[in-house]
């Protein structure tokens, strides 16, 4: 799925500037614990989380995660947005809770690890 499609599906705001038009997201993981993201996700290209701090962007960078969606209406702070733009990571913010946002993406064919 393209960023624009994800944003439309989740009624999400795109928080970072100039998101890539070509990026095709195939898989995702949903977690609030960054250690879990690093332990259990392998080929994820997108992270859905309720946690909002700079370490989310750092974790995404280490894991090659290109898109982070903040759920339940949480919004990243300007320093996080700057860091993400520097690393080429797209940040989105949706009002949907984690389960609903994940379900919507799953129903459109986005898959997790282990299936």
């Amino acid at each position: 799925m393209r960023i624009a499609e994800i944003a439309e599906l989740l009624k999400a705001e795109i928080c970072t500037k100039d998101p890539s038009q070509d990026l095709d997201i195939l898989s995702a993981c949903s977690a609030d614990l960054m250690s879990d993201v690093m332990a259990f996700s392998k080929e994820n290209a997108m992270l859905l989380t309720g946690l909002v701090n700079p370490q989310v962007v750092r974790t995404a960078e280490m894991m090659d995660i290109k898109v982070v969606v903040f759920v339940r209406g949480k919004k990243p702070q300007p320093p996080m947005i700057e860091l993400a733009e520097e690393k080429g990571i797209v940040l989105l913010s949706t009002d949907y809770p984690l389960f609903v946002a994940s379900g919507k993406l799953y129903s459109k064919g986005i898959r997790g690890r282990g299936e």
Binding site: D32, L33, M34, S35, D36, M38, A39, T49, L51, N53, Q55, V56, T59
Partner: peptide, 26 residues
């Protein structure tokens, strides 16, 4: 895995799940 002595303030930041050392090893 899962053993942690991290304080709650660290857990609130998304770490301290007791996965750090085992993640490093893996």
């Amino acid at each position: 895995e899962g053993y942690s002595t991290a304080p709650d303030s660290i857990r609130e930041m998304g770490f301290g799940a007791g996965m750090g050392l085992s993640n490093i090893k893996k």
